[in-house]
């Protein structure tokens, strides 16, 4: 178990709901769910969720901390916002799912090999370093995340797509050596560092 996780288990010993309300983005909405299941039926990747959103909400209220935070369910969210606009109680479900995924990841107990978790980390690191997406390095890092051999295999599978994009001027083959990020990277990095510090402090993680 990670230190951050142990800290939170001890702090909120009796109430996972309180922990979610305090530490998860939009988590104070969780108690508003009335279990109708419209979110589950509206999700494009619904069949792939081990626990659909309304079940997650009930599990949070029932204190099933480990089952929720180690689940890969939230990582199936495509950010389509269908659940938000259809929820009769107007819960910001998409954001709560993002918040739970982020919190589990921050505590180090999210499913290690989940591809969306891994891709999301690669993506954020990509934009946080230069301020703008470098599509070439983003794709290469994604395809090679399981090592050279599988990277070459995935690279070959994606060759047609990549060449199509290069030919139509929509992918920079020189992206490894030339990429224009923001000019004020120093300010951007300092800003992100400060934002993370404040967020960790607010959540008692610092």
């Amino acid at each position: 178990m990670t230190d951050a996780n142990t800290l939170m288990v001890e702090k909120y010993r009796n109430s996972f709901l309180k922990e979610v309300e305090a530490n998860v983005e939009e988590g104070d909405w969780v108690r508003m769910c009335m279990q109708c299941g419209v979110c589950a039926g509206s999700c494009p990747l619904g069949p792939h969720w081990a626990h659909p959103p309304q079940e997650i909400f009930m599990m949070i209220r029932a204190g099933k901390r480990e089952e929720v935070l180690t689940s890969d369910s939230m990582w199936m969210c495509t950010s389509c916002y269908n659940c938000i606009v259809r929820c009769p109680r107007e819960l910001p479900i998409t954001h709560i799912m993002h918040g739970l995924a982020n919190y589990a990841h921050r505590l180090g107990i999210a499913p290690k090999m989940n591809p969306t978790r891994r891709f999301a980390k690669i993506f954020w690191d990509n934009i946080a370093s230069s301020g703008r997406v470098n599509e070439l390095t983003l794709s290469i890092k994604l395809y090679f995340m399981d090592g050279i051999a599988s990277g070459i295999k995935k690279g070959l599978e994606m060759m047609g797509v990549g060449l199509g994009l290069v030919k139509t001027g929509r992918l920079n083959p020189l992206g490894l050596i030339s990429h224009s990020g923001v000019k004020d990277t120093k300010g951007l990095h300092a800003m992100l560092k400060k934002a993370k510090e404040i967020e960790d402090k607010r959540k008692g993680l610092a």
Binding site: E25, T78, S79, H98, G99, A101, N102, H105, R106, T116, R117, F119, A120, K121, F123, W124, D125, I127, A128, G131, R132, V133, V182, K183, D184, L188, M191, L192, K194, A195, K196, I198, E199
Partner: peptide
């Protein structure tokens, strides 16, 4: 001038809440 990425739909997982809003607020 000097705009940065919005964090897109996947930035939340590593970026969290405040860093993501800071990007857009910038």
């Amino acid at each position: 001038p000097d705009w940065n990425c919005c964090g897109a739909s996947i930035g939340y997982a590593e970026g969290g809440e405040l860093p993501r809003h800071a990007m857009n607020a910038r």
